[in-house]
Design a protein around this nucleic acid. Structure first.
Lengths: 227, 227
DNA sequence: ACTATTTTTTAGATATATCTAATTATTTAT
DNA sequence: ATAAATAATTAGATATATCTAAAAAATAGT
């Protein structure tokens, strides 16, 4: 039986693997809030179930089966987030916590009906791509707002969904997916970024701009590709 | 921590207590599909948590706290059933199974928002009353269709929600809450009941009519109460 | 009232996922 | 290259909810 715990491990491993190449015990333990010892014993189990490729002291890789389960759960999570926002009027800082619990307990029927009501959406309220039923994601090439230089105009595409307080703060400033931002000034040594958005100006620290993902190129004044 | 298991035990105890007066180990075990030994050990635990009054070899009664949790779960279940039917287009034979899982995992926020979308409903799709947030239920005095004599016209008010096949069969005959039934003939010794509903006639066995609950008095030709 | 049957409880085992503490392996720094 | 630091694993314990098999208590039948 695939327990909730197994699903959580696979989801975290998937997400870590997207960034780094080698996923280590440490990182999994930290993300899940359990001890390293717990992770080790669970990795053994996942390996026996053929959900991961596990080489002790090296790292972990999902097998086809493991990735399938991870993507199913991520699809559940992101569909739920959008459904809670659209159909039940949740604010975008509330949806993550609720989806985190429900993602493990909804049926395929529920998943399908939500998707139908929402018109088979591609992105959740924070701009994260929703994997399709057969495990394909609309991947995009985005950069963190922290890496953008002064003078650029970029478009917000995605924000981190973990921290409710952060989301409320972004909401107050009007920073949502699809909104355009002018980067006015960039303080040296990772200092605050001075931006303008919908006519209002703000200074944002690095721990904030690290969690905002934008289009890599300026959204305007870019020459069209010529054949 | 109140586990899912504890919630299930309290729900079953509540439902058994509504019918019989004394709730025994046997009945709980049967309803939950576990052994009597498991029930005994769980009853001890529930007693320690002050959720039930437990006298070994006698029976079990819910305390105020236990009843509160039971009613919360029943509210979740019935609100979910109605929400799945109304908002997501589930048929009435599908809602029970999904609600049975989700009832343990939705937040109070989710509960409140469903209730708001549905306009604070009093009954679920099978006609079962939905407890209010402070634990009050719209109780009605109903009788089983099996107990109704020939010649009566009664109104369906509630049907059992457990058996999906039964529900599909009832649906096919048009037997839903609020529909009126004429009882034409009653075979002796618990034989089939001959009924007419919306112009069509059917013969129903006792195991079926036992699961249909109707108004105790004839729904028409009843004198208005005079002051 | 005593025996037989049914019901309930106890005793002891299992499975899952977690923990702490101690050990072993790997990596980093001088 | 060896010591120090970091990371991962093992061993053994805990907690929860379940099970089977056996014993004890309550109920029913003659």
């Amino acid at each position: 039986m695939i327990t909730q715990s197994i699903q959580d491990y696979l989801k975290v491993i998937y997400k870590l693997a997207v960034n780094r190449k080698q996923v280590n015990t440490n990182a999994i333990a930290e993300r899940l809030g359990v001890t390293q010892a717990s992770v080790t014993s669970m990795l053994k189990k996942l390996s026996e179930l053929n959900l991961i490729e596990y080489k002790p002291y090296y790292g972990v890789e999902l097998t086809g089966g493991g990735e399938k389960i991870a993507l199913e759960i991520i699809r559940h999570h992101r569909l739920l987030e959008l459904y809670l926002a659209e159909a039940l009027g949740y604010s975008w800082d509330q949806v993550h916590e609720e989806a985190e619990k429900l993602e493990h307990h909804i049926s395929e029927e529920f998943e399908d009906r939500m998707a139908a009501v929402l018109g088979d959406p591609d992105f959740d309220p924070h701009g994260a791509p929703i994997p399709s039923k057969d495990g394909v994601m609309q991947e995009r090439y985005l950069v963190s707002l922290a890496s953008v230089g002064a003078g650029a105009r970029v478009q917000v595409k995605q924000v981190s969904d973990h921290n409710a307080e952060l989301l409320r703060y972004l909401g107050k400033m009007g920073i949502y997916p699809e909104v355009e931002i002018d980067v006015l000034e960039k303080a040296p040594f990772g200092g605050p970024l001075h931006i303008r958005i919908a006519g209002r100006e703000h200074h944002l620290g690095e721990s904030l701009t690290n969690q905002i993902w934008v289009t890599p190129q300026p959204a305007r004044d870019e020459p069209e590709a010529t054949s």
